[in-house]
C-alpha cells in the first residue's frame, strides 16, 4: 500500500478534489474489526448512509462539507458515536474503537 492514506483503502479511482471523504478504521482490542456497521448521521442526527467495515476494518463515505456523526455498531458492543467536521477536497479521517 505504498503511498496509501492512513486508514484508507485505495483512492486511485476517486477524484478527491471533488469529494468530501470521511473514512477510517474500526478497532477492537487494538486490532482492525471487520463486519462492524458504520452509519453516517447528518447534523440533525438523521441517517444518511451505512457501510459494513472491510476485512481490514475500513469504511468510507462520500459526504458534503459540514458536521457529521459517525455511529458504529458491532456485535456485543455498545454503539459508539464520533463527531467529524468534514471539508471538500480532503480525506477526513475518523478512527473508532469499540468495546
Amino acid at each position: 500500500m505504498c503511498g496509501a492514506t492512513t486508514g484508507g483503502v485505495s483512492l486511485d479511482d476517486v477524484d478527491v478534489a471533488k469529494e468530501t471523504i470521511i473514512q477510517g478504521v474500526v478497532y477492537r482490542d487494538d486490532a482492525p474489526l471487520a463486519g462492524a456497521y458504520v452509519r453516517l448521521l447528518d447534523s440533525s442526527g438523521e441517517f444518511t448512509a451505512e457501510v459494513p467495515t472491510s476485512a481490514t476494518g475500513q469504511f468510507r463515505f462520500f459526504a458534503a462539507p459540514g458536521t457529521w456523526t459517525v455511529r458504529t455498531l458491532a456485535p456485543g458492543a455498545e454503539s459508539v458515536d464520533r463527531s467529524v467536521v468534514a471539508s471538500k477536497g480532503a480525506v477526513n479521517t475518523v478512527d473508532v474503537t469499540v468495546g
Binding site: E19, L40, A49, E50, V51, R60, F61, F62, A63, A64
Partner: peptide
C-alpha cells in the same frame, strides 16, 4: 440537493 447519491457512493 446537497448530495446526489447515498453517502457511501461517489457523488459525480
Amino acid at each position: 440537493g446537497r448530495l446526489l447519491a447515498p453517502a457511501h457512493l461517489p457523488q459525480e
